[in-house]
Amino acid sequence: MSAEAAATRRRIAPVGHFLGLAVVVLTSIFPFYWMVTTSLKTRADAVARDPVWFFSPTLANYREALFDSGVAHALLNSTIVASCTTLLAVVLGTPAAYALARYEFRGKRELWFWYITNRMVSPIVLAVPVFLIANSLDLIDTHLVLILIYLTFTLPIVVWICTDQFRGVPVALDEAARLEGARAWTIFWRINLPLAMPGVVVSAILSFIFAWNDLLYALVLTRTQARTAPLAATSFMSGYELPWGVIMATGTMIVLPMVIFAMLVSGRLVQGLTMGAVK
């Protein structure tokens, strides 16, 4: 390559870099953008044969979704279910994570791998038997059944991320406390847990997002009382009329809080998705 060509290359490189990044940003945002704008369109604008790019926005779809279609109730259900399962996962998962980080015991490796296997199992495998069990226990259409079944993926997330976090807490602190006569639980609760809080928070947010986003279990295990928001969004597809504005308004209300949460933990999103294999 001649020196001149190299110079040209250096000059245009930032332009290419900029354009490339712009493409990344635009494509990432576009479907989301289209959802949000459709949710603000009138019925006619939403299904106009030539898609409408500029229009005067209306909140009518949100009103209809929230007040006439029971989406408010569904959002409340989603909030209850996702919060409870997250809380439960943290309560059950952090001690386990601490033990995995601090103690040596037989079967530790196997235990760790068993948690990982839960990440791989397809929900449809569990959906059929869980439906039958829930049905015979009269738990169909309750918050409880979703809270419990969501533990199959929230609990592993908490264990994975927090184990990593606890490993970062200096062992010396444990030793010092033990010399002063502190018991194992106190060492965990008073010293380690506060120091591992960043990891706990990240795992809690990720658990919340995953639980919030589920459709399959909710489809199989709920009816009306415990119907979650994603299920509410799909219930508009009656095969007769598709109120796209209302559907997208519901979609926006479901997705927007998750996007915000995910942005809060964006640095550790990958860690959550890969179960700590990639940091």
Binding site: V24, F32, N213, L215, L231, A233, M258, A262
Partner: peptide, 17 residues
């Protein structure tokens, strides 16, 4: 940051979109 949007979008809503 924009990369987070697709990842956080509820799967069912991705299908609707």
């Amino acid at each position: 940051v924009s990369l987070v949007i697709p990842l956080a979008t509820t799967y069912a809503v991705v299908g609707l979109i």
